[in-house]
């Protein structure tokens, strides 16, 4: 109980009331970023299109987490949970994609060798 005993005097986590201004500004910035992501996708940036789209999506997700999900005003541990989940997911995605990019050429080469042989 030590942590909630020590957290209580400062501000009771979870009782922060979001002001209308911040809520509307959050929604508005999400709309603006949606517009930007649509616009940017219509310009051909080659491989950078993915990077831009993901960067904007991550920004939007951060805004949702901080304000709509009021993590900015919460016990830090809740943020640790979300970040840990995001990192594990990123680990999973990046390692498997890394591996598949490495072994696919071998499979294609083997595939062609089989076709040539038959």
């Amino acid at each position: 109980m030590t942590e909630h005993a020590s957290a209580r005097p400062a501000h009771e986590p979870g009782t922060h009331v979001m002001s209308p201004g911040i809520l509307v500004a959050t929604a508005a910035s999400l709309m603006v970023l949606t517009a930007i992501t649509v616009t940017s996708s219509r310009i051909d940036l080659g491989p950078w299109n993915v990077v831009v789209a993901l960067a904007i999506a991550c920004t939007k997700a951060t805004i949702v987490a901080l304000f709509f999900m009021h993590l900015k005003y919460e016990n830090r541990f809740l943020m640790v949970i979300l970040i840990a989940a995001a990192l594990f997911a990123a680990l999973f995605v990046s390692f498997v994609v890394f591996d598949t990019v490495q072994y696919q050429p071998e499979i294609r080469a083997a595939d062609q060798a089989v076709r040539k042989g038959s």
Binding site: L30, T34, T37, V38, S41, N49, V50, A53, L54, I56, A57, K60, A61, V64
Partner: peptide, 11 residues
């Protein structure tokens, strides 16, 4: 959905 939208519809 914030991730699904660009990944599926845009790029």
């Amino acid at each position: 959905w914030i991730f699904l939208f660009p990944l599926l519809y845009l790029i």
